[in-house]
Simulated scan of single mutants.
Amino acid sequence: MKSALDCAALDAAMENVHRAGMPGLFAEVRDGDQVWRGAAGVADVVTGRPVNADMRHRVGSITKTFTAAAVLQQAESGRIGLDTPIGRYLPKLVPGERGDAITVRMLINHTSGLAEYLPYAYPSFKAFPALADTGPQSLDDHRFTRFDPVELIEMGVTAPAVGAPGGAPGLYSNTNYLLLGELLEQVTGTTAERYITENVIERAGLRDTELPAGPYVDGPHSQLYEAWFGMIDPPRDYSVYDMSWVVPAGSLISTVADLNRFYGLLLAGEIVSPSSLAQMQRTGPVISQEGKTIDYGLGLHPMEGPGQGTFWGHGGTVWGGGALAMTRADGKRQMAVAVNMQRWNRLDSSGKPQPHPIDDALATLYRVAMYG
């Protein structure tokens, strides 16, 4: 395995993503004791304020690894059974036969068969990813909406099931992780946000990471530009946005340095036990929101390069922002990348997202960052 960081290649790969159309991006790559941090482009397209690698950023579904780790901790203490039906803990939220059939593990690995609530909360999402007939209006409508997680869960639970409990492939659904947030509250006697903050974020020593539901990002950060498949042109800033629509599933704010620290400690068995980590790394097929089949474990998914070993981590998106954090199984090579625009692919006449130069440029950056 290549051990040295090629800083010139990383700088060039970052710049190429910016040139391909990304307003701004920043990253940290680690190899043993070597650390490279880089940034390219702007945090604000109006003022030209540059991005830098220390910025705080909404990292979306990377939150799911933190929530999964919290549930695994409670499983270690005996308060949660991974193969216990969710109906035993939350009978009012998942009643009847489904509550008896869906286990906690099925929620964490997206094999519950529960539908995604997003299309019901956000009409813009109704036809995702075939969005030819929908517009982004509901994004603006909900900038400051305070959602009740129980109401969102009800939308997902009462919607037609997308599969049988435990069936393969699973279907990625934020409803699962909102339920895990309610489960944590039920068994710990405190909010999921507080439990995750005290037992995952603070346990990992993360100084610039928090799990807020509110609309603002504190500290230095980038604007977040949503293109909504070319329907918002020029892309609009959604950096101020109430995150109550997705708290335990996607509201985390962090930095690329904190993300690498967290995944390094997780894969070293210091956030959950080694046996719990092994459970997290047991994967099965899951269909993503983009319609792609991925391998997914308990809040983790793998990426593999030829002869380079397996990397573990998670990606995430919010309105306008995204991130990907991956750490090699031995913990020695790490990558965390943050971008400040989302859904840059325009749609063809059938509503299918079309290739964009950003896609290839990002793939190259990830390859250089992970594999040298």
Rank of each mutant, 00 (worst) to 15 (best):
G219I: 09
A249M: 05
M243Q: 07
G284A: 15
P235K: 01
Y238A: 04
L211R: 05
R261E: 15
G264V: 06
A227H: 07
V246S: 10
L252W: 01
V240A: 08
N260W: 08
R207A: 14
M243A: 11
M243S: 08
F229L: 03
K292N: 03
L252I: 12
R236A: 15
S244L: 03
E226K: 01
E210I: 14
T283M: 10
P212V: 09
P234R: 01
D258M: 12
G219M: 02
Y225S: 08
M280T: 08
L266N: 10
T255P: 14
H221A: 12
A204I: 09
E210K: 06
G214A: 02
W245V: 09
S251N: 11
E210Q: 13
I253D: 01
T283N: 12
L267W: 06
A227T: 06
Q281H: 01
M280K: 07
V256D: 09
F262V: 05
V286S: 08
D233H: 07
L267I: 15
A227G: 14
A227K: 00
Q223D: 11
P274D: 10
D237M: 00
N260I: 14
S251Y: 12
E202Q: 13
G214H: 11
S254P: 13
Y241N: 13
D242F: 00
A249F: 02
A249W: 02
L267K: 07
W228H: 11
R261V: 13
L224H: 12
G250K: 04
G219F: 04
E202S: 13
P285Q: 06
T255F: 08
R236W: 03
Q281S: 08
V256K: 04
W245L: 11
P274W: 06
A257T: 15
R207M: 14
L267C: 15
T255E: 12
H221R: 09
Y263F: 15
A213V: 15
Y263E: 03
G230Q: 02
S288I: 03
T255W: 05
G264Y: 08
M231W: 00
G219C: 03
S251M: 10
S254Y: 05
I271T: 10
I271A: 04
L267N: 12
F229Q: 05
M280L: 05
V240D: 09
P220Y: 00
G291E: 07
D258F: 12
V246N: 12
V246Q: 12
E210C: 15
E290S: 14
S239I: 05
I271Q: 08
G291S: 04
L265S: 03
P274I: 13
G214L: 01
A213C: 15
Q281K: 13
W228P: 00
L267D: 11
F229H: 10
P235W: 00
Y216C: 10
S288Q: 06
S275V: 14
V256M: 09
S273K: 06
I201T: 08
L277K: 07
P248A: 05
D233T: 14
I271K: 02
T293Y: 01
R236T: 11
K292G: 00
E202Y: 12
P234Y: 00
I287L: 09
A227P: 13
T293R: 05
E226Y: 05
A278K: 10
Y241G: 05
D242M: 11
W245N: 06
